[in-house]
Design a protein around this nucleic acid. Structure first.
Length: 468
DNA sequence: GGAACTCGCCAC
DNA sequence: AAACGTGGCGAGTTCC
């Protein structure tokens, strides 16, 4: 895969972007080394405890008898052999190469003390060996200087290594706390995290200009795409996000239907995901199971009341909503997708609006997704460059950009510069970008989270939600 | 002893 | 007819 600027603008973006990121690398991230070392020991003890608990189980006896001195708790191949050959469990899923899988989903399905302990052990092992170990290794004089690359991805996104600053845990609260508490601002500073809301969906829309999607994106306070699809999928009149179960259904729709559909997924996978989000554990529908919606009834009971009595019928509804989505709601978007692929077949490449060529062997999804991901990231890259220029040249501020995660910029900001920096973010990431790329014909959203003064990356609060 | 592979899992 | 996009990395494993 060759990376290739399409025009002068593309070239300049990578040139300035490289310089900007190189400065970020120099700035570095302040780390709480004592915390890292303390947690490394702490988690180590927990790992040892789990090992001890696992070691007395009957499954381990069988495992050790078979593998003798080669016994290795960290070997997935051995684990699969014991579970599926020796203990005759049924494999519920296979790996890419056709072997029985022992990933999280497969082990959860076994629902045994042994499988659950392995999962717990793995999680702790990951926190210690991938994250804590990597952070300790790469921290010099209390600062971390991750490498940021702009030349490694087919999509023209960035990547990061040593360590990968772009995949630090956050969704799992336990891992998030252990790791993100180690990231701290300089003395007297805040960590300020600014991210674009829905930038990929917006950049897709910039290209396809589907009128229905435009309407959603131009009316963010009154229209909500994910709620609308949730209503169709679950046969509800509306979604009340103040009800916990209904909020979950909306989140499930977003994560298991809308976004995967945009990436090129289909109803079959979506239905499996949605079933889990509802809290249903087997393909046989159980009216007592599932999240509670309004009037305190389960989603399973609600579906039954509305004529969906089994998984197959639910999957069929997802199929109907998929058709509705592309044929009736977003026909222009659908046509644009077809045209992307046709263009590629004819010319051998597609381009991004930021000035790059996507070429090489691509399947249909790639011709659709690469230009979207690239352009979305280039919104952030452009903002990083402008922010850096303003901070250094125009304002001579002490604020430092320290890293970036695709659609989020993290800065280390002195208390006295905080108000100015917040204004700079709004001006640059929203107003200036809209002027710079006038093809962006919809509002942009900016969310800013801030740590406490002398706080850390784990304990942050939202200080701004800006739409313009 | 290192390269290349598999698997699993973290992020957007 | 088939069916989810982009990365990095630790550990195990296989091969040379």
């Amino acid at each position: 895969m060759k990376l290739l600027p399409y025009n002068q603008e593309g070239y300049q973006l990578l040139h300035d972007g490289s310089l900007c990121f190189s400065l970020m690398e120099q700035n570095g991230i302040r780390m709480d080394v004592a915390h890292l070392k303390h947690e490394y020991k702490n988690i180590g003890k927990e790992i040892q405890e789990k090992e001890n608990e696992i070691n007395v189980l009957k499954e381990i006896k069988i495992w050790k008898e078979k593998y003798k001195s080669k016994f290795n708790l960290d070997s997935d191949a051995q684990l699969a052999d014991i579970l599926f050959n020796e203990l005759k469990h049924e494999a519920i899923k296979l790996t890419d190469t056709g072997n029985p899988s022992v990933d999280q989903e497969a082990l959860k399905a076994l629902n045994s003390p042994f499988a659950n302990l392995i999962l717990r052990y793995r999680k702790l092992f990951k926190i210690r060996n991938t994250y804590l170990k990597g952070l300790i290794k790469e921290t010099y004089n209390e600062y971390l200087h991750p490498s940021i690359n702009v030349h490694t991805t087919r999509t023209y996104r960035s990547s990061a290594n040593s360590p990968n600053i772009q995949n630090q845990p956050t969704r799992d609260p336990e891992a998030g706390e252990v790791i993100r508490k180690a990231f701290i601002p300089r003395e007297g500073n805040y960590l300020v995290c600014a991210d674009y809301g829905g930038i990929e969906v917006k950049m897709a829309c910039v290209m396809h200009q589907d009128p229905t999607m435009l309407k959603y994106l131009r009316n963010p306070t009154t229209a909500d795409m994910h709620s609308d699809f949730a209503c169709l999928l679950f046969k509800m009149d509306d979604i009340d996000q103040s009800i916990k179960g209904e909020k979950t259904l909306r989140a499930g729709t977003k994560n298991s239907f809308t976004f995967p559909q945009f990436y090129g997924d289909y109803y079959g996978n979506n239905a499996i995901g949605l079933w889990k989000w509802m809290g249903l554990t087997s393909k046989k529908i159980n009216p007592k199971e599932g999240v509670k919606i309004r009037d305190d009834i389960t989603i399973a009971q609600h579906l039954i009341n509305n004529g969906i009595r089994n998984y197959k019928q639910f999957e069929n509804n997802v199929k109907l909503i998929e058709e509705d989505m592309w044929k009736r709601r977003f026909p222009v978007y659908k046509q644009w997708r077809e045209n992307q692929y046709k263009t590629y077949l004819k010319k051998g490449f597609v381009t991004t609006l930021s000035g790059f060529v996507c070429q090489g062997l691509m399947d249909k999804n790639a011709t659709i997704n690469y230009p979207i991901q690239g352009l979305a990231f280039h919104c952030l890259l452009w903002s990083c460059i402008q922010l850096t220029n303003k901070i250094l040249k125009q304002r001579k501020m002490k604020t430092k950009l320290i890293f970036q995660v695709h659609d989020e910029i993290v800065a280390d900001v002195p208390q006295e510069e905080y108000d100015d920096y917040l204004e700079l973010l709004k001006e640059t990431m929203v107003h200036d970008l809209l002027k710079h790329w006038s093809f962006i014909n919809m509002p942009l959203e900016l969310e800013v989270d801030r740590s406490e003064l002398n706080g850390n990356w784990f304990e942050t609060e939202t200080v701004l939600h800006y739409i313009h």
